[in-house]
Structures are given as C-alpha cells and as structure tokens.
C-alpha cells in the first residue's frame, strides 16, 4: 500500500548534492542524470527526511493526490 504523502523536488533549485540520497531510508531518491534529484514514487513513503536535510530546501512533502493533479 502506498503512503499518503510523497516527496517532490523543485528542479530549478536542486543542486544535486546528494544529501537527500544519504538521508532517504528507502533509497527512493537518485540523481539519474546528475542534474537533479529524482524521487521513485513507488518507493517513497513520504517520511520527510530528505526534505529536512536538503540544504536548499527544494524538497517538499505533498499529498499523492496533489502530485497526480499536478501531473495531469
């Protein structure tokens, strides 16, 4: 069962430092192209650890429905 919340990255602010990668207990974050952090929606449990460690504050925790609405 998927969590209610999910992490989302503001790409324009992310510097791809990798602090969130270390903090994520689910290994749900990666930087596939080296430019920005990317959240694996299936693995993310929305715990917010990445959001609390990000030095630029570019990761927010939002409701999954909100994210789906944003995508549509």
């Amino acid at each position: 069962m998927k969590s209610k919340n999910i992490a989302t990255v503001n790409k324009s602010v992310c510097v791809s430092c990798g602090a969130c990668l270390d903090a994520c207990p689910m290994s749900a974050i990666s930087t596939p192209d080296g430019c920005y952090a990317k959240v694996n929606e299936d693995l993310c449990v929305g715990c917010g650890k990445c959001s609390r460690i990000c030095p630029t504050g570019c990761i927010s925790i939002i409701k999954r429905e909100e994210q789906q609405n944003e995508e549509n």
């Binding site: 430092c17 080296g34 430019c35 030095p55």
Partner: peptide, 23 residues
C-alpha cells in the same frame, strides 16, 4: 543545514554543469 557547502562547492557546480551540458 549540514551540507550547505555542497550548494556552492566549485566541484559540485562544475560536475553539475558537465551533466547539464551532456544532457
């Protein structure tokens, strides 16, 4: 926050620049 240096680390800026150019 702990890794604030990483936001303006010259090596990080350079490597991210390379990645953006390669994309």
């Amino acid at each position: 926050r702990p890794r604030t240096w990483c936001t303006f680390c010259p090596m990080g800026t350079m490597t991210q620049g390379i990645c953006k150019l390669k994309k």
